[in-house]
Computed example of a mutant assay.
Amino acid sequence: METLVFDGHNDALSRLWGGMVEPVTEFAGTNGHVNVPNCAKGGMKAGFLAIYSPMNRGVFDFSSFDPAIFDMPMPPIMDEAVALTSAIGQAAIARALHDAGQIEIVTNAPGLAQAFMADPIACVLHLEGADCIGPDLLALDALYALGLRSLGIVWSRPTIFGDGVPFGLGRDGDTGAGLTEDGKRLVTRCKELGIVVDTSHLTMKGFWDVAETDVPLVATHSNACAVLNTTRNLTDDQLAAIGETGGIAGLNFGTIFLTAEAWKTGKAPLDACIKHLAHMVEIAGEDHVALGSDFDGAPLPEGIETAADLPKLVQAMTDAGFGQTLIAKITHENWLAHLGSHFDRKS
């Protein structure tokens, strides 16, 4: 029996925008990690499709791995207008895919439940880094009108709302300041609109600032510091808080978030995913752990080349003795339950 998958984070929209291609034709083909045929083969029925504003327009090259790209100073704050141009472009690509029947942009609980069982890929539109939003928050409301229902306050660079973590090995995410006053207003506005607040890439201080706003703590694509201590992973205290607040932690497939060796080679074995999942379940609880692949945005573990290979991860979970009930929770039920209740609270 096929195991269905809800993916908590991928960069397919950024790939399509960065490649400057005709999106509907490209998404129907086999390029990249996430596309129509790969999702169909891998059982991926839904996902958070991220809008991400890069400093330079292009597609991430997975053919080679250069560890130097992760050993660099924190980027500066991105120009709001430049970030908005790419954000609007990617939102328009999402709409084109929606209109072509390749994805279904979902904004409420009934729509999510229906789309998950239909042919188009159910899409929760996500903003990875609020670089394109000014202090008046007007761009947030505009993106909400376009279907945005999830927001990461930062990528790994600062914004006017808070600090992101640099990519670093051997230390946790306690690398900088927390939310600014504008950042606290942004979270409050997201709460009013019913937008999920994602703490991935955020400093530890920022994470705990979000906790004080009384929203469920969500980290769509972040792993466990206890397994690999990196700035992008979560401490046990953070994982426990995610469980206690009814949030979700999504396993990131990116190799540098899985093993220390990947910081040299870019490679990691598939069983590293299982080690992180097991620890995340132990600390956060089995109802609060899911998947957040980072497809199209990170090098992947051995055996997982695209979304078509998701059954291999499911088999690895089975081989590790997870059991079908737990596997179903991790692969799709936890995201569906969390988002369903989140949308219901707003409505």
Rank of each mutant, 00 (worst) to 15 (best):
T203Q: 06
G168D: 06
Y144K: 09
E181R: 13
P135C: 01
L217E: 02
R185P: 05
T213R: 14
A139R: 13
C132A: 15
G170A: 07
D163H: 14
G176C: 05
C190K: 02
G173F: 02
T180K: 01
D214H: 14
D163C: 10
L140Q: 03
L143M: 15
F161W: 04
G134V: 05
G152S: 06
L138S: 15
T213F: 07
L140F: 06
G170R: 06
R149K: 08
K184S: 10
E181M: 07
C190W: 08
G168Q: 13
T213Q: 14
L137V: 09
T180P: 07
R171P: 05
L169F: 09
K184V: 12
A142Y: 12
L151V: 10
G152E: 07
I133V: 15
K191C: 08
R171E: 14
A211T: 13
G152A: 12
G134L: 04
K205R: 15
S222P: 13
L179S: 05
A142V: 13
V197M: 07
D214L: 07
L146I: 00
T199Q: 01
A211R: 14
A145M: 12
D198P: 10
G164L: 06
D163A: 14
T188Y: 11
G147T: 03
H201S: 06
T203R: 02
L179E: 01
G206V: 08
G183M: 02
D141L: 02
V197S: 01
N223P: 11
R157H: 13
T203K: 06
K191A: 14
L127I: 03
I160H: 04
K205A: 15
L179N: 04
L151A: 09
T203F: 01
A211S: 13
A211N: 12
L148E: 04
L138C: 12
I133M: 04
A139W: 02
D131G: 10
F161S: 05
E212G: 15
I153Y: 00
C225Q: 15
A145H: 12
T220A: 14
D198I: 13
H221D: 09
V218F: 14
D198Y: 10
F207D: 12
G134T: 11
V218S: 00
G170D: 12
L202M: 12
V218G: 00
V227N: 03
V218L: 04
D131Q: 11
V165D: 01
S200T: 15
P216M: 11
S156E: 03
L146V: 01
C132L: 06
L127C: 06
V215N: 01
P166A: 02
E192M: 05
I160E: 11
S156Y: 05
A142N: 13
V196G: 02
V165K: 04
C190L: 12
G173N: 13
R149A: 10
T188V: 08
D198R: 03
I153F: 01
V165C: 13
H201A: 02
G164K: 05
T220D: 04
L146C: 13
A177C: 07
L193A: 11
E192L: 07
Y144P: 04
L217R: 01
V165M: 00
N223E: 06
L127M: 14
V197R: 00
E192K: 12
